[in-house]
Structure formats: structure tokens, C-alpha cells
Simulated assay, not measured.
Amino acid sequence: MRKVVVGALVGLVFAAVGGVALAYPSLAATTCPGCYGLTELSPGVHVEDGLTPAQRARAGEVADQAARRVTAFYGDRRSSPDLLVCLTEACYRRIGGGQERGVAVLNRSVMLSPRGLDPVIASHEMSHVELHARLASSAEVPQWFDEGLAVVVSGDPRYLAPESASESAPDRCLVAPSGPLPVTLEEWLRTASADPATYARSACRVSRWLGENGGRAALLGLVTRLNAGEPFSALVRTR
């Protein structure tokens, strides 16, 4: 009887694991990259199997550059997300990707599509993971701040002008924000998919707030106060 029970339990475990893999391949791929045709390039960096030496070198270069961007902004890193890199659309679909260039998965890993093998995209997604690694589970920021900050950290030229050495031209905004920005993830996905300029507006608002309040020190102070229980709305005043 004991063998039957154990066998039944093992069967249920495998069924559950299989169900997760089918329903959430991105989570399963993060847990077992090799199960999805990815090989380890370096600690924490997994790439599609069968790449050329040049493609492997490019993936490693992107990972290193993205990590340096995040470190340069924060001063150090509290997160170390696994990076899953696909150079074909078939690979990216297999690990659960869609039409996006890249995506952070449960603040544990970052998946990059063939269109996202770039330090800007990689550091954008890694910024999400780093921010949430610093925030307590009870602390919250609106989605526009999370996304706008990721644009600032990555220096994405699609949504934010380059930093200027001139004090007379400190504003990096390409599109000035007007009105409320999406607060929840659901609102963000709906709004940003209809209007990509939502990224630029959010980046502008975050960039201006940082510029007016001390840059990185302001962000680190904000995180500390959020973790102490103060609400975001009472701490961040935007125009």
C-alpha cells in the first residue's frame, strides 16, 4: 500500500510540474534553462544552444554592459537575475516569450528575444528586478514610476534624450507628461500598447523628479522611506 501511495504522490508531483511547464513556460525555463534548449554561457547567463562563437560573444557582451549600467546607476547591485537569451523567435516562443523585446519574470530572471539582444533592453528589464529587490514586499510604486525609472537606468534613446554636459539643457524629456499616468500593471499594459509615448512621458516624469531631488540619492532615500511604510503618493510630488 505504501508503495502505491508513494507512486501516486510522485505521479501527482510530475503532473503538477508538467502543468506548470505547459501553463507557464517562462517560469519553467527560468527554473530549468537546459530543459528548454539553453546552455550556460557564464554564471547566470543562458543562451540558445547552437550559437556561433560570435553570437555567444555578443550575448556575453550585452549581459556585461547591461549589468554595468544598472550598477552605475544604483552604485551597487542587490539582484542577480538569470539572463535567458534567444537568438531565434522559435527559441523565444518556446520559453514563453511573446512580441516584446524582453521581459522580467517574477523579479527572478530576464528573458531577451532576438530583437532584445541589446544593453538598453537588457538593462531596462534588469532595472525592474533591481528595484524590486530593494523594495520590501509591502512597499509599492506605481507602474509608471517603475517603467520610467527603467528607461532612465537604461538610457533608452527612443524615450529619453541623452544626458547633456551643459547645465543650460538638463531636461532630457522627449515627450512631456500631461495628466495621470498608469498606476497598475493592467493599466500600463493597456495604455502603453495603445500609445508607446507612455514610456517617454513616464521617463520624463521620473527624470525630472530625479533631477529636482538629488538623483540616485533621492531614489535610494525613497526606497528607504517606502520600506518604512510611507506611501509613495506622500513622497513623490511630480509636475
Rank of each mutant, 00 (worst) to 15 (best):
G215K: 13
Y92M: 02
A218Q: 10
V152L: 09
W144P: 00
L160P: 02
A194M: 09
D49W: 13
A66Q: 03
V110D: 04
K3T: 08
H124T: 06
E163I: 11
S168G: 09
G215L: 13
D76I: 04
E140F: 12
P33A: 05
L174Q: 12
R205Q: 15
R56K: 13
T198V: 14
A54W: 03
T191V: 13
R56M: 12
R2Y: 07
G155S: 09
G44M: 10
D76G: 06
F145S: 08
L222D: 00
N227K: 09
C91L: 12
C204L: 08
Y36E: 00
L84G: 07
E61H: 07
D118F: 06
A192V: 15
G116E: 02
A228I: 07
D82Q: 13
D171S: 08
R69P: 01
L12Q: 08
L181I: 02
D64S: 15
R101S: 11
P33Q: 05
A203V: 09
R69A: 11
L226N: 00
L106N: 10
A122V: 01
I95L: 15
N213A: 05
S233R: 15
K3F: 07
W144M: 12
S137W: 14
A150C: 06
L41S: 14
V10G: 04
V13W: 11
L135N: 00
E212G: 04
L210D: 00
A66S: 07
